[in-house]
């Protein structure tokens, strides 16, 4: 992907990174929440099983972030920090996913016919469904790269891994995705 395409694809993400936040400030954390919530949910949707779970995980993400807000260092990219927390939350959620499946089936039995709700559209998307079948860290790398437009270096910062690991993870994710979509 060209760098010009990257920069044109995610002006909001770039803007969020240039915002100044004071660690420990409640007002700044609320501003951070408003600025980043949608992108965090967008990442989580591709990892967890549905939109409502993604929203729950997003709230959990901000709860954890708030507890560590006073310790956050302004020299670290704040959205990368949030994404790292969000991906960890999503991985934890996946571990408990099987336990919830029985209750989910019962809950869906009484659900009315779905309309044009974007959440339902997202849940029915073949691509999103395929992403959910990938390991969480691979799916996260793809979304950070191809939806949020992060560079490999930024993804490495978000996932707290070497840049080389991001490259190999992305390659593996693409191969895995092809297999899932082709099956």
């Amino acid at each position: 992907m060209q760098s010009s395409e990257l920069e044109g694809a995610e002006p909001a993400a770039r803007q969020a990174e240039t915002e100044r936040y004071e660690p420990g400030s409640d007002a700044d954390f609320e501003r951070l929440y408003r600025n980043t919530y949608r992108r965090i949910v967008g990442t989580l949707i591709t990892i967890v099983r549905d939109v409502s779970t993604a929203e729950d995980c997003a709230q959990e993400t901000y709860e954890r972030a708030y507890r560590g807000w006073a310790k956050w260092r302004p020299d670290a990219p704040v959205e990368a920090w949030l994404h790292r927390i969000a991906i960890n939350v999503a991985i934890s959620d996946r571990r408990y996913q099987r336990l919830r499946q029985a209750g989910e089936v019962i809950r869906r039995l009484g659900r009315p016919a779905p309309g044009a709700d974007p959440a339902v559209v997202a849940e029915r998307s073949v691509m999103v469904q395929a992403l959910k079948k990938l390991p969480p860290k691979q799916a996260a790398a793809l979304v950070l790269r191809h939806y949020h437009g992060y560079t490999n270096r930024e993804i490495a910062a978000a996932l707290d891994v070497p840049e080389q690991t991001v490259a190999s993870r992305l390659a593996a994710a693409r191969k895995h995705l092809q297999v899932v979509l082709g099956s």
Partner: peptide
């Protein structure tokens, strides 16, 4: 596909 689906959400 990600933009089509996730932008709406």
């Amino acid at each position: 596909e990600l933009h089509r689906v996730l932008d709406a959400v």
